Amino acid sequence: MSYDQEAADALPSSFDIGGLSNALMNPAQAFNMLDQNGDGRVTEVDLKLLLEQFGIKGMSAKVLAKFIFKKLDADHSGSIEPSDLTHANGILSALLKMKQNK
């Protein structure tokens, strides 16, 4: 199984991407929402916490956070920049489509 398919499978069947997509529409606002401790960095842990707020729990949240973080951390700095978040909705949409086509 590919890493992409593993991440798609981690999405709960009942997951409504709409709320999370709306939250990520404005990269600067999404960054502030993700950076809950205000340190100016968004880490994989921050992303996992956001996924949990949208109902993705346990191992699913961990797998998805790792996958999405790896896709978004364009410069491999270990943190996500606001500009990196412009691709988040596309990543989520692709995963959802992959899950639905399985």
Results as ranks from 00 to 15, higher is better:
residue 88 A to Q: 02
residue 81 E to K: 14
residue 34 L to H: 07
residue 17 I to R: 10
residue 32 N to V: 03
residue 56 I to V: 14
residue 6 E to H: 15
residue 14 S to A: 10
residue 82 P to K: 04
residue 74 A to C: 09
residue 38 G to I: 04
residue 44 E to D: 10
residue 54 F to T: 08
residue 94 A to T: 08
residue 69 F to I: 06
residue 60 S to M: 07
residue 48 K to W: 07
residue 32 N to H: 12
residue 26 N to Y: 09
residue 3 Y to P: 03
residue 43 T to M: 00
residue 55 G to A: 12
residue 61 A to I: 15
residue 23 A to V: 08
residue 72 L to R: 13
residue 14 S to M: 08
residue 68 I to F: 10
residue 102 K to F: 04
residue 9 D to R: 13
residue 55 G to P: 09
residue 80 I to M: 01
residue 83 S to K: 12
residue 18 G to Q: 03
residue 68 I to G: 07
residue 5 Q to H: 14
residue 70 K to R: 12
residue 23 A to Y: 11
residue 85 L to W: 14
residue 24 L to I: 01
residue 31 F to Q: 07
residue 9 D to Q: 09
residue 95 L to G: 09
residue 64 L to E: 09
residue 56 I to M: 11
residue 76 H to C: 03
residue 90 G to Y: 13
residue 75 D to K: 06
residue 93 S to C: 10
residue 47 L to D: 03
residue 49 L to R: 06
residue 102 K to M: 02
residue 7 A to T: 00
residue 82 P to V: 00
residue 35 D to G: 05
residue 40 G to V: 02
residue 44 E to T: 03
residue 102 K to E: 02
residue 76 H to I: 00
residue 98 M to W: 11
residue 78 G to E: 08
residue 90 G to S: 12
residue 64 L to A: 04
residue 59 M to E: 12
residue 59 M to V: 07
residue 21 S to R: 14
residue 24 L to F: 03
residue 100 Q to E: 13
residue 88 A to W: 04
residue 60 S to K: 07
residue 18 G to I: 01
residue 54 F to G: 10
residue 22 N to T: 02
residue 88 A to Y: 02
residue 96 L to D: 08
residue 66 K to Y: 08
residue 59 M to F: 13
residue 61 A to G: 15
residue 25 M to P: 01
residue 49 L to C: 03
residue 53 Q to A: 13
residue 66 K to H: 11
residue 15 F to K: 02
residue 29 Q to V: 11
residue 80 I to V: 05
residue 50 L to Y: 11
residue 19 G to H: 05
residue 92 L to S: 06
residue 61 A to F: 15
residue 81 E to P: 05
residue 19 G to Q: 04
residue 29 Q to L: 12
residue 50 L to I: 06
residue 6 E to F: 15
residue 86 T to W: 07
residue 74 A to M: 06
residue 47 L to E: 04
residue 101 N to Y: 12
residue 76 H to S: 02
residue 56 I to L: 12
